[in-house]
Design a protein around this nucleic acid. Structure first.
Lengths: 176, 176
DNA sequence: AGTGAAAGACCCTTGGT
DNA sequence: ACCAAGGGTCTTTCACT
């Protein structure tokens, strides 16, 4: 195989790291075929650029917030950005998406109890400036999360043809 | 202050780790007031139990998947579980939520192009057994993510009162 | 059970060349 | 890229509560 491009080196570092975030730089360097110093400098750059983040994911239930809810929100025209930033600043809210469609915002929250969720929804979310309508749905189960998905990327990442790097990818042949 | 309960020791370890996932065990031990050995034993247990996960979060765009879409899916009665598991097995899909309400499933996906998204939606998702109706919304911006939210937990975690009145969950169960 | 403490081997990180 | 020094990890062991 021809030597990897710089971005492909970065990506293989990320792919290996996703498989085992706690592995040492030397182990990583051996796997991707670079020196330890190169790997370290690339990692530092990727983290600085925000392409890569190290994180610890706690169980929300273990941290005392077992109630998991998704809110769909219609915002008043012109109020969406400020509303999104307000939601993002709330410690009950884990995700805030700005989306197209009937609703403008989808937000995901964790609460200590269903009563705490109700209080948040009726007394805090409902009173935020710019909220026109909101719906809540309870999350019953989470079957997959982003950091688990990252391992899929690692597994399928080398077969670029399956995904297409370009604008016109072929039909993905992945089967369950 | 009285000595912490065992679960509070676990939680303070998690809170510190969330602030800096790459800190050393000795630094962590100093912060939470335990020995290095204790901290490591607790961390190993928490990871084994699934209460804590170390992860690397790559930028989806950097990995070649800049198109971010949320699907809402109505499933045929009795087909939901199998459908969720199928979706969770697909490498395009990062999140799968089983939820209450009009739609049964909310899934989040990343794609190499809007055309790849269209192909997935019309040719793969639409043909899955049990899918009755589906909507897609494009994600324009993500203002907050779960691992960023985890830092809120760390900041507010000690003041339980700030979170309201819910019954303090004793044993958080084994599910992740 | 769980913790603190200590010693030693090993390896990694770090900073300098 | 190489190297050396300092430091962290991990294991084992033991006494303590």
């Amino acid at each position: 195989m021809a030597s990897k491009s710089s971005i492909e080196k970065d990506r293989s570092i990320i792919r290996e790291l996703v498989q085992d975030p706690k592995q040492t730089n030397v182990a990583l360097a051996a796997k991707v075929g670079l020196s330890e110093g190169s790997v370290r400098r690339r990692m530092e750059r990727l983290v600085a650029e925000g392409q890569l983040q190290f994180a610890v994911i706690p169980s929300a239930a273990f941290m005392g917030r077992p109630v998991h809810t998704i809110f769909e929100i219609q915002s008043a025209p012109g109020a969406t950005e400020r509303l999104i930033d307000k939601l993002a600043g709330m410690p009950e809210i884990a995700y805030v998406y700005h989306v197209t469609g009937q609703f403008d915002i989808i937000a995901v929250g964790y609460f200590a109890s269903s009563n705490a969720m109700r209080t948040f929804w009726t007394e805090r979310l409902g009173h935020l400036e710019g909220v026109m309508e909101s719906r809540s749905v309870m999350v019953l189960r989470v079957a997959k999360r982003a950091h688990e998905w990252a391992r899929d990327i690692a597994a399928t990442g080398d077969e670029e043809s399956a995904w297409g790097t370009g604008p016109e990818p072929g039909v993905p042949g992945t089967e369950v």
